[in-house]
């Protein structure tokens, strides 16, 4: 049968983007080890409501590790200490009885706090809107098997496409850089035949949009450590190469017109 944990929580509370936040201490008693971390927070919230207090806001939706909505810095680590695991998939059996757990929002200049543990990650959408797509209108596609994609390219592209857009890479980075996220999308689209015609235009535009929101990369590699989908740092190298090429190519093309 499952054992129970008694925990102390230090949780960041903040009313809105412009307010100063602060930590509050809560106790969570009788937590079953089979619960997920978010279910533990549900219980804390239920207790707060019983006491007539305002519950803690945190982002979540699928609770299956795929939608990228959940976040949280748990004891200073994005999505907690478990490798390749989102907060919603982290279970209480990974914690010890009597432990104190510190819970904060993902912090970055480009991710302002909305309330408590909820942050605004819409800067990621702006990066995608800058070119993270292949321009094919509905109805314009030819038969899918007319464009074979070498399995290796397809598999590597897939490894990049597995990014769930959670933002842990940014939160973990000392510079709040978004290289891993951006390179994941570029790796997805730039490696396959369908993505070639806009490859360099896309790279230049996405990288520059990224830079307008986020800090610069100084190769710490913390992003990869925190990433629940284990997106490889190789994609950052690939993006950097494509960016240099893009600068040269796009300039040449501009000269031709």
């Amino acid at each position: 049968m499952s054992t129970e944990l008694n925990l102390t929580l230090q949780i960041w509370r903040q009313d809105g983007p412009l307010d100063d936040g602060h930590f509050e201490t809560y106790s969570a008693a009788g937590i079953s080890e089979d619960m997920s971390f978010l279910e533990m927070l549900d219980i804390v919230n239920e207790g707060l409501i019983q006491d007539g207090k305002v519950p803690i806001e945190f982002d979540h939706d699928c609770r299956e590790g795929i939608c990228g909505t959940c976040s949280l810095m748990i004891n200073g680590q994005a999505h907690g200490q478990e490798k390749a695991t989102t907060t919603c998939q982290l279970h209480m059996r990974k914690f010890n009885d009597g432990e104190t757990i510190v819970v904060e929002p993902f912090r970055a200049r480009a991710f302002p706090v909305v309330r408590d543990l909820v942050v605004d990650r819409s800067a990621f959408d702006r990066i995608i809107e800058a070119g993270g797509y292949i321009s094919v209108n509905t109805g314009a596609a030819s038969d899918a098997n007319l464009t074979p994609v070498p399995k290796e390219a397809s598999d590597t592209s897939f490894d990049a496409a597995a990014c769930i857009g959670c933002g842990a890479c940014v939160a973990a980075c000392p510079n709040s850089a978004a290289q891993l996220f951006t390179s994941a999308k570029l790796g997805h689209l730039n490696l396959i035949p369908q993505g070639q015609s806009q490859r360099f235009e896309r790279t230049e535009s996405m990288v520059e949009t990224m830079e307008s929101f986020f800090g610069s990369c100084t190769n710490h590699g913390e992003c990869h450590e925190a990433c629940p989908k284990e997106i490889s740092l190789d994609f950052i190298a690939f993006m950097n190469r494509d960016y240099v090429k893009a600068k040269v190519k796009n300039r040449k093309l501009a000269g031709q017109t």
Partner: peptide, 16 residues
């Protein structure tokens, strides 16, 4: 066809 053209990485066989 539409999804493949958008770059959706469907599973592929060795021949691509």
């Amino acid at each position: 066809d539409q999804a493949a053209a958008q770059g959706v990485p469907f599973a592929r066989e060795y021949g691509g």
